[in-house]
Computed example of a mutant assay.
Amino acid sequence: MKNITIADVAKHANVSKSTVSQFLNKRYDYMSEKTRKKIEETIKELNFQPNIVARSLKQKSTFTVGVVVANILHTFSTHIIRAVEDFFHEHDFQIIVCNADDQPEKEKKYIEMLRAKQVDGIIIFPTGGNLDLYEQMKEDQFPIVFMDRTIEHLGIDTVMLDNELASKLAIDEFVKNGYSRIAIVTTSIIRNISPRVERIRGYRSALQSHGIEVRESYIKTVDAHQIAGALDELFAQPLPPLAILAGNDIVLIEVLKYMKENNLQIPGDAAVIGIDEVPFASFYTPSITTIAQPTREMAKSAVERLLQRIKKEEHEELSPMIQRFAPAIIVRSSCLQG
């Protein structure tokens, strides 16, 4: 079967090859509606399939970007991926999603694979364990944007939450409802993963602003499978906490599971607030107060910045930016007294 080419489409539609090319690239400015319709009908009639490889070579772009997620199990990650795909689709870009499972070795393999496939750029939720690789990409002027996590000394564009404010909103809500014995539980801070470190810093600062003593025994940073043990330690203290700030959605799930398995009442035995909105928060009993991230706005910012990096001219200078977005508290029943 003969491969149908742009020349065949042009001849059949009685237009020039450049006009067909403009149609395929959605440049309709100087094209009549009649010509557009004619080309469209010819493409269907001849069953023409554009040569993506040839287009990539000609335009020096694969129109593909990578998204390397640190842990796809986070609700935030899946919401970001969904929004990123929407925004890139508007620009006729496709995305390849890779899940690093918070493993630097896996992240490294995925980044190397994506570069071998000649993607135009990558959005990375960095594990923090591949500093040399990040620096090499920056030196190569390869377009990258960090999402959710920053490594400040590298000077790489980053889109993330104002994590200290997220903790402050939660602590303020607890204090407003009469709680002062407040614990925070986050997943491991090995490799200084910035959101977790910043949320703990925000927790400390917010307690101090309310004149509440910071109890080191109320701060737990462990891997997900160790959260139940950390909660055992919290509730075994002579003065156990009466409120728990779950540092992310995975921690929140583990806290709720622990409370149910141990017949502990929310908020009777301990009030709970989770950072990251989760689908079940509004219909869980009691409904869970959460700190929500503006995922679509964050995704849009990351996409726009990566496209700027991809399309910038060689002489053009783009200073690295760290853009932080404000969270919002969604007040429900899990920390209301009485």
Rank of each mutant, 00 (worst) to 15 (best):
65 V>L: 07
182 I>H: 04
238 P>N: 02
333 S>W: 11
60 K>P: 10
264 L>M: 15
197 V>L: 04
43 I>W: 00
325 F>C: 11
155 G>Q: 00
273 I>T: 04
33 E>Y: 03
138 K>R: 12
108 K>E: 12
15 V>C: 01
158 T>C: 13
301 S>E: 12
212 I>G: 01
202 G>E: 00
190 I>N: 14
319 S>A: 15
85 E>G: 02
323 Q>S: 10
47 N>C: 00
160 M>V: 11
305 R>G: 08
136 Q>Y: 02
295 T>S: 14
211 G>V: 06
192 N>Y: 06
151 I>M: 15
225 H>T: 10
25 N>K: 07
250 I>H: 07
65 V>D: 01
93 F>M: 05
91 H>K: 15
247 G>P: 05
214 V>I: 12
323 Q>P: 11
56 S>F: 03
175 V>M: 06
57 L>N: 10
232 D>C: 01
89 H>I: 14
81 I>Y: 08
172 D>H: 02
37 K>W: 01
48 F>A: 04
47 N>F: 00
77 S>V: 04
17 K>S: 06
36 R>S: 06
289 T>L: 11
19 T>C: 03
204 R>F: 03
78 T>P: 09
310 I>R: 13
291 I>F: 06
216 E>W: 01
194 S>Q: 03
120 D>G: 03
55 R>Y: 05
86 D>Y: 14
156 I>H: 01
15 V>K: 04
9 V>L: 04
97 V>I: 14
61 S>G: 05
261 E>R: 13
214 V>C: 07
150 T>H: 06
72 I>S: 05
307 L>G: 05
151 I>G: 10
221 T>L: 05
124 I>N: 03
273 I>R: 08
146 F>Q: 08
21 S>Y: 02
80 I>A: 14
268 G>Q: 08
325 F>A: 10
57 L>Q: 03
3 N>K: 09
134 Y>T: 04
100 A>T: 04
34 K>M: 10
321 M>I: 15
209 S>K: 03
23 F>C: 00
35 T>I: 07
135 E>P: 10
271 A>C: 05
208 Q>D: 15
321 M>N: 15
5 T>C: 00
215 R>G: 10
205 S>I: 13
324 R>E: 15
197 V>A: 00
255 V>W: 00
292 A>H: 03
132 D>Y: 08
189 I>S: 11
50 P>G: 02
199 R>C: 00
41 E>L: 02
269 D>N: 12
44 K>H: 12
